[in-house]
């Protein structure tokens, strides 16, 4: 018991001091991306793991988060900290709009419908040149060291922010698994009709879980936008991302508290086997598909401006 009680503070202290172990910023950036994936997998776990609804469209919420905070910052000067909350609310609404028709479907049909929803959103953003920058994407205006605007030149800043996000997502999952809400979600995963026969309003609880999961995923989207300082439809709405979030959670153990974290850790260990530069390229590809290309496009635009 005593050993268990020590585990949490020790783990937390270790996580806080971890950056000291890294001499170069590349390693830290790999860890940051791995933690972001852990956070996204934990968010996905609420609906995809505990509730058992295999969503393959979570990039939709990630993209909504990234675009909402970025556009609000660019057009209104609103700090992304607040834009992040706006994105979370919008993603929650999107989860209801997507969930109402999709939750009528089961299994593979549900998965495909959510996948389609994310693809549709991507196409919409790609075709909105005026408002959202179209397929080229959007740059986040550089402010250098501006923590109040969710920006910093030091990677340490992002490391601690994403650490906080992971901690929050763990707490949310833990609360969920130990509450009536989580018991109901687990029952729905096991047998929706049997749950309904015991008074569980399955549709309502699935929607609640989806909204919570989507809002958390959107916050991850804002984090990504502020960290990469550039977003494009392919990067933040891409099918890769949707699948990757789900796969990390499934590999680690869906429906469990530590599974999503374990999945991200496995990813990190695989990636760490490579040389640091290769690591960045690999993660970059994993996240977007064409990171170098979009980076070049951004550079060309900056030179033109």
């Amino acid at each position: 018991m005593a050993a268990r009680a020590l585990l949490l503070p020790l783990g937390a202290a270790g996580a806080l001091l971890l950056p000291l172990a890294f001499g170069n910023p590349y390693a830290l950036s790999v860890v940051i991306l791995a933690l972001l994936y852990a956070y996204l997998a934990l968010s996905w776990n609420l609906i995809g793991g505990i509730t058992g609804q295999l969503s393959l469209g979570h990039a939709a919420y990630f993209g909504i988060g990234a675009y909402t905070s970025t556009v609000l910052f660019a057009d209104l000067g609103l700090t992304p900290w607040l834009g992040m909350l706006a994105g979370a609310v919008l993603a929650g609404i999107a989860a209801v709009v997507i969930g109402l028709p999709c939750f009528r479907l089961r299994g593979a049909y549900y998965a495909l419908a959510t996948l389609a929803a994310a693809v549709i959103l991507k196409v919409v953003v790609e075709n909105s040149n005026e408002l959202l920058g179209g397929p080229r994407g959007l740059d986040v205006r550089l402010l250098h060291d501006a923590p109040l605007y969710f920006q910093h030149t030091s990677k340490l800043f992002y490391y601690y922010v994403v650490l906080l996000l992971v901690g929050g997502a763990l707490a949310a999952n833990r609360w969920c698994l130990r509450s009536r809400f989580g018991y109901y979600l687990t029952a729905i995963r096991n047998d929706q009709e049997a749950a309904a026969a015991l008074g569980v309003d399955a549709r309502r609880y699935k929607l609640l879980a989806a909204v919570l999961s989507a809002a958390m995923t959107a916050i991850g989207g804002t984090f990504y936008a502020q960290y990469a300082l550039f977003i494009s439809p392919e990067k933040v709405f891409g099918v890769h991302l949707s699948v990757q979030i789900a796969v990390i959670c499934i590999i680690g153990g869906r429906g469990t508290l530590w599974g999503p974290l374990l999945g991200a850790l496995l990813l990190l260990m695989v990636v760490m086997r490579f040389e640091p530069r290769g690591v960045i390229a690999l993660l970059g590809r994993a996240l977007s598909g064409s990171r170098r290309l979009s980076g070049k496009a951004a550079k060309v635009r900056r030179e033109a401006a």
Binding site: R180, Y184, T186, R189, E193, A194, A197, L198, V200
Partner: peptide, 27 residues
């Protein structure tokens, strides 16, 4: 149900708790 429908992955106690949660919010 004629063909029994337990929540297979959950424990026996957790199965019954899904029923008793109807009257209790507290775990």
């Amino acid at each position: 149900f004629q063909i029994v429908r337990p929540f297979g992955e959950m424990s026996v106690l957790d199965n019954v708790m899904i029923g008793s949660f109807l009257h209790h919010r507290d775990r």
